[in-house]
Design a protein around this nucleic acid. Structure first.
Length: 431
RNA sequence: UCCGAAAUAGCUCAGCGGUAGAGCGGGUGGCUGUUAACCACUAGGUCGGGGGUUCGAAUCCCUCUUUCGGAGCCA
């Protein structure tokens, strides 16, 4: 008997086939048992009818519990009541394992319970949909970069020093070499890669020991960092915009069903695939003050400010040219205004907040060194980084995308913890 | 780290000083078209831990623990 996936069921109507999966739900009605089977690719209703199956096989079907694994053979057909929906008349039922009482019921649950049962929760329809969108976003990002001459250049996860400050690093002992840290960004290493390959990116887990406790933060999350030689501020933003718009289009095309399951507003996503808005940090602050925000010109945007800025804007907004005091040491100063740096943050619409941070990098050795000394960084640890400005330095730019933030926006879900299989947060590391 | 809320059946919650409750889930039975199916019956509890007030505490007070929501920081 041919084993097929539920997603391909429409091409096998009228033929006897075999499905292998798990019982999503089971309902009985006298001589009928309705088994909703899911197999990873999708789900469908299968029907056991006592007179067709016989006493023994029918009893086997009745005994299936939620999430029991089962192999079912039968003949798929059009659903008698619902156009375009298929169901399967069962010929045989072979339980693989009868599940114990499944803890996740069909009714509502609280977040604590669901997170403690994350290993089971991922089977639920919405979690299934979000994880498939995550896969598609990941795929779309790599696809765009590969098509635009970026090479994958994996940066190390174990690092001897900090990229931006040391207070938020997870620390560990590294044999006889002293302390090592889990990387919070591969950016500095990527800057070495462009001098060899021209354009590079990495994509992997990064770690921040921030005691953040919001719906936008994880202590372990996946970041894509891209870096390109001879790319300056303006082109850097064009690449970011092209990438995000490619992700939106790919998700809309490939994840229509997932978006439906999540009740995502697809029109809002579609509307974001248009030229992005741009504001300088100065303009943004002026605008926010006119709306009543307490923000001043020397400050970063608060969560409320981000929401206020994007209210009424269908497209993401670049905030560029930030005060140098509140941005990282490696950002290049604006030649037209030495008080600001050529950095850009991209704020997603619909209140989803910041999804990209990028900048043109400082390529002058002496300016970079002065900035590092001003921040009292241990210069000897960063000699390799300063070397890049001695041996053929070039203007270059890059940016980082938080995968989970982007997936949160694409999925339209409330909390970032649902966008990664096993979220790591300040008060949660199980399972 | 700061501010706020919560903890009662496997789960979601009600009860707020006088015998521990409901819905869902589980079990048993019924039903030929169910869609978080329905109907009947049934099992299931140290009311988060510790201390106090009271004739009497799930309920009031103190304390600890855990979790949730938000802020800051960031992606």
């Amino acid at each position: 008997m041919q084993h097929i996936l539920i997603k391909d069921i429409a091409t096998y109507l009228g033929q006897e086939i075999c499905l292998k999966g798990w019982v999503r739900n089971i309902r009985q009605s006298g001589k009928l048992v309705f088994i909703i089977l899911r197999d990873g690719s999708g789900e469908m209703q299968t029907i056991a009818f006592k007179p067709d199956l016989g006493e023994e096989a029918f009893e086997t079907a009745k005994r299936l519990s939620l999430e029991s694994s089962v192999i079912i053979t039968g003949v798929p057909k059009q659903h008698p009541k619902q156009e375009g929906v298929y169901e399967l008349d069962i010929k045989s039922v072979q339980p693989v394992q009868i599940a114990e009482e499944y803890p996740i019921s069909k009714k509502e649950h609280g977040p604590d319970f669901l997170l403690s049962n994350r290993h089971l929760w991922i089977r639920s329809p919405k979690q299934w949909a979000v994880l498939r969108i995550r896969h598609t976003v990941y795929y779309a990002i790599c696809e765009y970069l590969n098509d635009n001459d970026f090479f994958r250049f994996d940066s190390p996860i174990l690092t001897p020093n900090a990229c931006e400050g040391t207070t938020t690093l997870f620390e560990l002992d590294y044999f006889d070499e002293g302390k090592a840290y889990l990387s919070q960004s591969g950016q500095l290493y990527l800057e070495t890669g462009i001098m060899s390959l021209g354009r590079v990116y990495d994509f992997g887990p990064v770690f921040r020991a921030e005691r953040s406790k919001t719906r936008k933060h994880l202590t372990e999350f996946w970041m894509m960092d891209a870096e390109a030689a001879y790319v300056e501020h303006e082109e850097n933003m064009q690449i970011q915009e092209g990438l995000i718009r490619h992700v939106i289009r790919t998700v809309l095309t490939k994840c229509d069903r997932e978006l439906t399951i999540l009740e995502r507003d697809k029109e809002a996503l579609q509307a974001a695939d248009a030229p992005f808005k741009r504001m300088t940090h100065y303009e943004a602050v002026e605008y926010l003050k006119s709306k009543g925000s307490e923000i001043d010109h020397g400050s970063d945007l608060g969560a409320q400010d981000e929401v206020m800025l994007t209210e009424g804007s269908p497209v993401p907004i670049f905030i560029e040219r930030w005060p140098k005091e509140i941005k990282a040491f490696y950002m290049k100063r604006d030649p037209e205004n030495p008080d600001v740096v050529l950095g850009d943050d991209l704020i997603a619409p619909e209140g989803f907040g910041e999804i990209i941070g990028g900048s043109q990098r400082e390529d002058d050795h002496d300016l970079l060194l002065a900035r590092m000394q001003a921040e009292k960084m241990p210069i000897e640890d960063y000699q390799w980084f300063l070397d890049l400005r001695k041996y053929g330095s070039v203007p270059h730019s890059g940016f980082g995308i938080g995968l989970e933030r982007l997936v949160t926006w694409m999925s339209g879900i409330h909390h970032i913890r649902e966008t990664i299989p096993f979220p790591r947060m300040i008060y949660r590391i199980y399972p």
